[in-house]
Simulated assay, not measured.
Amino acid sequence: MSYSNIISDYSNGITTITINRPKKLNALNRDTIQELHDAFDDANEDADTKVIIITGSGEKAFVAGADISEFADFSVEEGGKLAAKGQELLFDFVESLNTPVIAAVNGFALGGGLELAMACHFRIASSNARMGLPEVSLGVIPGYGGTQRLPQLVGKGRAMEMIMTAGMIDANQALSYGLVNHVVPQEELKTLVESIANKIMRNSSVAIGEAIRAVNANYEDGLNGFDVEIEAFGNCFGTEDFKEGTTAFLEKRKADFPGN
């Protein structure tokens, strides 16, 4: 599939999706959100893709926010629909994928950009990265899950401060908050992310998908995460990956997971 605003590349089990609007600092507009949905959907359905990496083009920005020019004149109803559609199409969609998604945060991750990074399963940042939710400085609030995911990741007090001040934090502060897992110089970011992706790919993709579902259940209203874990644990016993993993362990060899 060809895209106008993103690039999707596959290599050795990894699909890398790059938001490619460098002149706009990779800002999210409606077309880009739709293209991202399509690319994530295609990668998730591709049996050969074991890990998805999302990053931004250039050296300045992961995603510097939403394209404000698209919604500056929206009504109350239009604003609500914008948030609802965006969450469904991209942010909630990414969070729920059974293929691991790593955000390689290579610069500014502001507003919708930070919200996209937070929807990923975890984040790795370059040392020049800056993160924040500046929406209240525009008279609006984060609308793509930011008020929900940020407190989950950094705690209520820190999230309140970041949202209320509309300020940015640097990569090391994000690391101390638990917002990102690792910080490295920008020239080392790709290498580290791919190294972690390769570690993930050694394991059962089926089990990883079930683990993602169980972890996410803890944050979903109406679900008991322990019950989901029990169900997911049981499901694993019916898979070829479980048979291969346990057999390989008993035979003292490396597992070759079939992925089903």
Rank of each mutant, 00 (worst) to 15 (best):
D221V: 06
G157C: 00
T191W: 06
A214E: 00
Q148G: 03
A211E: 05
A197K: 00
E187M: 10
S127C: 06
H121K: 07
N203L: 05
S126G: 15
G107P: 02
N128R: 01
I208R: 12
S195Q: 10
A119D: 11
N106W: 12
I169P: 03
I212N: 03
V180R: 02
V193K: 03
I141L: 15
R213Q: 09
N106A: 10
G113A: 08
L223N: 06
A129R: 06
R130I: 00
V215W: 03
F226L: 14
A109D: 01
G143N: 10
G157Q: 14
A129S: 15
E194S: 02
K190I: 03
A159S: 15
V136Q: 06
K190R: 15
M201Q: 00
N218C: 05
T147N: 13
G222R: 08
M160L: 08
T165C: 07
P134W: 08
A207H: 01
M164E: 13
E210F: 09
L192H: 06
E187P: 05
E135T: 03
Q152T: 06
S176I: 08
H182V: 13
E187K: 14
A211T: 15
A166E: 04
K156S: 10
Q186M: 13
T147P: 04
M118R: 01
G225W: 12
G157D: 15
S204E: 08
R149I: 07
L150V: 06
L138M: 10
S195N: 12
G178Q: 11
A197I: 02
D170C: 03
E187N: 13
S126E: 08
D227V: 14
G139R: 00
V183H: 07
I141W: 12
E161Q: 15
F108T: 03
M118F: 01
A171W: 03
P134D: 04
G143T: 05
A117T: 06
G112A: 14
P142H: 02
F122G: 07
G209Q: 10
T191M: 15
K156F: 01
N172T: 11
Q173Y: 12
R202Y: 14
I200F: 12
L175H: 02
N128I: 02
N106Y: 12
V206S: 08
D170G: 14
E220N: 11
A125Q: 09
P134S: 05
G146M: 04
H121G: 11
G222H: 09
G146W: 03
F108W: 06
L153D: 01
L175D: 00
Y144F: 15
L175N: 04
M118C: 05
H121L: 08
L175C: 04
S205Y: 04
L189G: 08
R130V: 00
V206K: 11
L189T: 02
I200Q: 02
S127R: 05
G111E: 00
G112S: 09
A117W: 05
L116H: 04
Q173K: 14
S204L: 04
G222T: 05
S205A: 10
V154D: 01
V154T: 10
A159K: 08
E229D: 13
E187I: 07
N181R: 12
